[in-house]
Design a protein around this nucleic acid. Sequence first.
DNA 1: GACCAGGCACATC
DNA 2: GATGTGCATGGT
Length: 224
Amino acid sequence: MPQLSALKKTYRLLNLHYGLQNWWPAETAFEVVVGAILTQNTSWKNVIRALDNLKRERLLDPHRLFRVPIQRLAELIRPSGYYRIKAKRLHNVLEYLITRSNGSLNKLAHIPLTQLRSELLEINGVGPETADCIILYAVEQPSFVVDTYTFRICARHGWYTPPFNYERLKNCFESNFPEDVKFYQEFHALLVRVGHDYCGTTPQCAGCPLRTLLPDSGPQSLET
DNA sequence: GACCAGGCACATC
DNA sequence: GATGTGCATGGT
């Protein structure tokens, strides 16, 4: 199974190069949820500015944040970009969280994983990546997160043939490793790290810890 | 000033 | 079901 060894090597090389990531950087599970919405197509630095505004106003609490008018919410999260649409999306998530579990992320862990994911995907503004971020980092259940970097890295190494399909790529990872929350978190964080450092729209392969995995005899698909 | 950043929904064909 | 477009700030 070449796909298994490629992914295992990837994890080993990244872990060796970067070490333990302990991502996601948040003080509470709820902060993870807010960050997951704010980081949509946005650099993390801008997300921090928006989160700082919410912290300063002591609003990083589901019930308190839900009571904030959407227009005010938009002003507070403005530095993260797309602020009007993100304010609505955040409000939608808050409404779900409060009606479903009275604002408790711990309680969401008792919902079967596939059902929880379906419910999150029904929320307007929550797509597959945001749903998986919430499940993996806030609810701490094993749902692998695929993002732009994951796709770019896999496509560039010839492990995955475009076009991009989220569920297909997610399945490549989940079917090759045991369900393990901590491992999923670390692997995803490492892929983001190396993607950020070396796999932008113009890739910088020099110095990349994964450069030894570049195909020299044609692409090898991750899918069987 | 141009380009980019850890998406998503919606319109159109 | 594939493809295009709007959403918007801040860094390089």
